[in-house]
C-alpha cells in the first residue's frame, strides 16, 4: 500500500481543527509521534489537550484535517474500531467500572484478545475454559505489574485514588496496545506518588515496547521522562522540542508565566 507516511511513524495529525460552537478548540494541529517515543503534551488549562485525545480516539470527529495511525487514515472511524487497531487510553476523570472488582476491570479489556464463540459462552464448553483461564492469568499478571495484585478482588470504586489511576493504566495495558495515550495520569497525586508513577510509565514504556503520549500538568514529570514535548495553548501548537528547548521557549514562558508588561 502506498502511503505518504514513513514506516516508523505511529501517529500523525495533519492540520486538525475542531470547533465547539464558536470556540476554536483545536487549531491547525500538526505533529507526528514516531515508534517507541515517550512524548508529552503540555499546556495550560483549557488549551485543548484532552480534545486532541478525544479526536484521536474517535470520541469526537474533527471538523477538518486528518489523523493517521500506522499509515492508515482513522479520522472518521468509530472509537471501538480505533481501539482495535492498537490504541488505548486512560481518562482525566477516571472511567473505571466502580462496582466491578479491580480484576474484572482488567479482564473486560483483556478479553478483546481472547475471544470465543457465543455457543461456547452459553454452554461453557469448547474453548471457554482455556480462554477464561488465560484472561484471568494475564489480567493478574498486569495487576501484579502495576502493584495491585493484592487488591484484585476489591471493588475498584473503593480503592484509594492513586491506585485507581494505576488500575486505569493496567486496564489500558490489557488491551495490548501499540500506542498508549495517558490523560493526566498524575492528577491529584502527591509528590511521592508522582515519583512512583514516573517509574511505572518509564517501566511499561520499555517493557511493553510502547509508544506513549502523555498529557501532563506537572511540568517536572514531563520534563523528567519525556524527550519529546509538544506545548499548546488556545488550541494551537506553540512549541515543540526537547525539554531544554521547551523550557526556554518564549511562547511557553508566556503561556505559563504570563506576559511582561512593557513600561
Amino acid at each position: 500500500m502506498m502511503t505518504a507516511t514513513p514506516k516508523n511513524v505511529v501517529l500523525e495529525l495533519d492540520n486538525l481543527n475542531k470547533f465547539f460552537g464558536g470556540v476554536h478548540a483545536v487549531r491547525d494541529m500538526t505533529f507526528t509521534i514516531s515508534r517507541g517515543e515517550l512524548a508529552g503534551l503540555i499546556g495550560p488549562n483549557g488549551a485543548g489537550k484532552t480534545t486532541i485525545f478525544n479526536l484521536v480516539t474517535g470520541v469526537y470527529s474533527p471538523d477538518s484535517g486528518h489523523i493517521n495511525f500506522l499509515g492508515e487514515d482513522i479520522t472518521f472511524l468509530k472509537s471501538f474500531q480505533i481501539i482495535r487497531k492498537g490504541v488505548a487510553r486512560t481518562f482525566q476523570n477516571l472511567r473505571l467500572f466502580p462496582r466491578s472488582t479491580a480484576l474484572e476491570n482488567v479482564m473486560v479489556a483483556m478479553q478483546q484478545h481472547h475471544g470465543y464463540s457465543f455457543g461456547e459462552a452459553i454452554t461453557h464448553m469448547g474453548k471457554w475454559g482455556k480462554k477464561e483461564r488465560e484472561i484471568h492469568l494475564n489480567s493478574m499478571d498486569i495487576l501484579d505489574r502495576v502493584g495491585l495484585a493484592e487488591r484484585a478482588h476489591q471493588e475498584s470504586g473503593t480503592l484509594p485514588y492513586g491506585m485507581q489511576r494505576r488500575l486505569e493504566i493496567a486496564r489500558a495495558l490489557a488491551l495490548e496496545p501499540e500506542f498508549l495515550l495517558l490523560d493526566e495520569p498524575a492528577a491529584g497525586m502527591n509528590p511521592e506518588e508522582v515519583n512512583e508513577l514516573n517509574d511505572l510509565i518509564v517501566g511499561i514504556h520499555e517493557e511493553f515496547n510502547l509508544t506513549i503520549l502523555v498529557i501532563e500538568h506537572h511540568m517536572d514529570l514531563v520534563m523528567e521522562i519525556c524527550p519529546h514535548i509538544i506545548c499548546m495553548n488556545f488550541g494551537a501548537k506553540i512549541a515543540e522540542g526537547n525539554p531544554d528547548e521547551i523550557q526556554e521557549h518564549p511562547e511557553v514562558l508566556k503561556a505559563y508565566l504570563g506576559e511582561e508588561v512593557e513600561e
Binding site: T57, V59, K78, S79, F80, I83, R84, R89, F91, R95, L96, F97, V108, A109, Q112, R171, L175
Partner: peptide, 8 residues
C-alpha cells in the same frame, strides 16, 4: 463511553 474505548 469507557466500553467503546475498550473496543466494544
Amino acid at each position: 463511553i469507557a466500553a467503546s474505548l475498550l473496543g466494544f
